[in-house]
Amino acid sequence: MTTKLLKLAKIDPSSLDERCVILSEGCPNCVPDETTFTTQVIRLNREKDERSSLPAVAN
């Protein structure tokens, strides 16, 4: 199901690695009546050359 969501969102699964988190507001299996889902990919770590200190924010 994850691959299907990524393809629907036009996200190439081969561009993701172990640092990526996939967030989706539902899926066709858990919400069969819905036809669209917001899907995001968040990369948790930056590449070594791009690292900088960023403040942590929690809600």
Rank of each mutant, 00 (worst) to 15 (best):
T3D: 08
N59I: 07
D17C: 01
M1R: 12
R46L: 15
R46S: 15
M1G: 09
P55V: 04
Q40E: 11
P55D: 07
R46M: 15
A9R: 02
S52T: 14
I42F: 11
V41E: 04
L5N: 02
R46I: 14
S24L: 01
V41M: 05
D12S: 06
S52I: 13
S52Q: 10
S52K: 09
E25F: 04
P55L: 07
R46C: 12
D33T: 15
N29P: 00
T36A: 09
T38K: 04
T38Y: 07
K48H: 08
T3W: 09
A9S: 08
N45W: 02
D12G: 05
L44Q: 09
D17I: 00
S53T: 15
K7E: 14
A58Y: 11
G26E: 03
F37Y: 11
E25W: 04
P32H: 10
T38S: 06
L54M: 08
E25A: 10
C30N: 12
Q40F: 09
A58W: 07
L44N: 06
S52M: 12
T35L: 10
L5V: 05
P55I: 07
Q40A: 13
P32F: 03
R43G: 00
M1W: 08
L8V: 07
T36E: 13
E18P: 01
T2G: 12
I11A: 01
M1C: 08
D17L: 00
G26K: 00
R43D: 00
T39P: 00
V57S: 11
L6N: 05
K10E: 14
E18F: 04
R43Y: 03
T35I: 05
S52E: 14
A56K: 12
I42Q: 07
L8M: 14
E47V: 13
K4P: 01
S24Q: 04
I11Y: 00
L8D: 06
R43P: 00
S14K: 13
S15P: 04
I42C: 10
T36M: 05
A9N: 04
K4M: 10
M1P: 05
P13Y: 05
N45S: 10
E47L: 15
I42H: 11
S15T: 13
L5C: 06
C27G: 09
P13R: 08
L6D: 00
R51W: 08
S14C: 02
N45L: 04
A56I: 14
L23V: 08
P13Q: 07
V57W: 11
D33Y: 10
D49P: 00
C30W: 11
D49G: 14
L8E: 09
C27Q: 03
T39K: 01
P28N: 08
L6Y: 03
T38C: 01
L16Y: 04
T39F: 01
Q40V: 10
K7I: 14
E47P: 06
L5M: 12
G26H: 02
T39I: 12
T3L: 13
C27W: 01
E47M: 13
L16H: 02
S15Q: 14
D49T: 12
E18Q: 11
I22Q: 02
L16I: 06
A56E: 04
S15K: 15
C27P: 00
P28H: 06
K7L: 15
E50Q: 15
T3A: 11
R46D: 15
F37Q: 02
M1D: 09
L8K: 11
T3V: 15
L5E: 03
L16E: 03
A58H: 09
R46G: 12
T36K: 12
C20K: 01
D33H: 11
S15M: 12
P32N: 08
